[in-house]
Design a protein around this nucleic acid. Structure first.
Lengths: 172, 172
DNA sequence: GCCGATAACGTTATAAGATCACATGGGGGT
DNA sequence: ACCCCCATGTGATCTTATAACGTTATCGGC
C-alpha cells in the first residue's frame, strides 16, 4: 500500500526532512547510535530488530509491516507476520521507530535519543514522511484537556498535504 | 475491537465531552441539523447514511466499521462491508463524522457545521472519545511546515490518555 | 411525464493489517 | 553447568478495508 523498493539505486538523494542528503552515511550513523544506546540500556538489538531498523533507515519513508516482512524473508529471516510485528513493537516502544497511524505504516525516528513528541508531515502524493517536533499539549488541546480533566499521555500529530518535490512537479 | 452495545440502556448519561448530558434530545437535534445542511447543499442523506449517522450519534463513542455494519444488518440494510464504508466515506467527507486513526474507528462530529480542525482525546481505558478544536498549523508544526515548504491540507491530532471517569475509578 | 446520465446500493471476492497460541532455541546470570 | 527468560519461528485466525461489477434509484432537462 505504502511503497515498494525505493527509486534511487545509488543509496543517496532520498527525502529525509524533505531535503536531499547523503544517505548511506546517515544510515550507518543511526545504526551505530542505536547499538550504543541498546548496549547502554541493556536492550537487546537482535538481528531481526537491527535489520528492521536498517530497512526503515534505508528507505527513509513509511513502510507497511508486510513490506518489511517481505524484505525480511528475502534476507532469510522468518516470514510470518509476528516476526515483523514483534520487531516493530520493540523498536517503537524504545523510540527508534514511529508508527504513522494515518498510513498504518512505520518510519525510523529522525531525532533519536531526543525527547519524544513527534509530529509528521505526510505527502499524499508520494508518501514521503518528514518528522518535526510538536508540543500539542501546550496549545488549544492542552487547555481543552485541562478543562475536561483529561490526562494526556501521548499524542498523535500527523499533517497530510503536499511535499515540496510534488508541489514542484504539479506546477510544471 | 473498539466497543460493543453501549452500557446505558436508557439512552442518556453517555459521555460526550466527558460530561454526562441528556442524550436523546441531542441525537434528534444533530440529525435534524444534518438533514437541513444536506438539503441546503444538495447532498443526499440517504437512509443508510442517515442510519449510520444516527448510530454514531446514539453511541457517542468510536465505533468500528464492522460494529456499524452489524447494526445495519439488524435494521435490514445490506450487510457487506462496502455498505458501511461508503456511508462512512460520505459522512466523513462532509464533516458529519470523523475517523479516529488511532482506533480505526468513527465518531459523530461534536461540532457540526463549524470549521474543521478537530482534535480528539481518547481514553485508553474505556475508549471514550471527546472532541476539541485545535490549530496545530499555528504552532511548532506550522513553522516546521513553512520552513520545509510543505503545504498542510489536513491534520490528525489525537491525544491518548485517561478520561476523568476512569481516573476516578483508578483512585478508588 | 419521459429519458438519459449519474450516483447510490447490494453482493462476491479478495487484499491488507494485526494478533493468538504454542513449540523451539539461544544467552545471560548464578 | 544449569536454568530460566526472552526472543524466534510457525500455523491459524481475526479485523479492517477495497476492487469489481451488475442493478436500482434519483435528478435534471426536455
Amino acid at each position: 500500500m505504502t511503497s515498494e523498493a525505493h527509486p534511487q539505486p545509488g543509496g543517496h538523494a532520498v527525502p529525509l526532512g524533505f531535503e536531499h542528503h547523503d544517505h548511506s552515511a546517515c544510515v550507518t550513523t543511526a545504526l551505530k547510535a542505536a547499538e550504543a544506546r541498546c548496549a547502554e540500556e541493556r536492550l537487546r538489538l537482535t538481528p531481526v530488530r537491527r535489520k528492521v531498523l536498517e530497512l526503515l533507515l534505508q528507505d527513509h519513508r513509511a513502510l507497511g509491516a508486510y513490506a518489511i516482512l517481505d524484505r525480511l524473508r528475502e534476507e532469510g529471516f522468518g516470514s510470518q507476520p509476528p516476526v515483523a510485528y514483534r520487531a516493530l513493537d520493540f523498536l517503537v516502544e524504545n523510540g527508534f521507530v514511529h508508527k504513522i497511524e494515518r498510513l498504518n505504516a512505520f518510519v525510523a525516528c529522525a531525532h533519536p535519543g531526543q525527547s519524544h513528541s513527534p509530529a509528521f508531515m505526510i505527502c499524499r502524493i508520494c508518501d514521503a514522511v518528514a518528522e518535526a517536533q510538536s508540543a500539542p499539549a501546550k496549545g488549544a488541546l492542552g487547555a481543552a484537556a485541562r478543562a475536561a480533566g483529561f490526562q494526556i499521555e501521548r499524542t498523535v500529530v500527523e499533517a497530510e498535504g503536499i511535499c515540496p518535490a510534488c508541489a514542484e512537479k504539479a506546477d510544471a
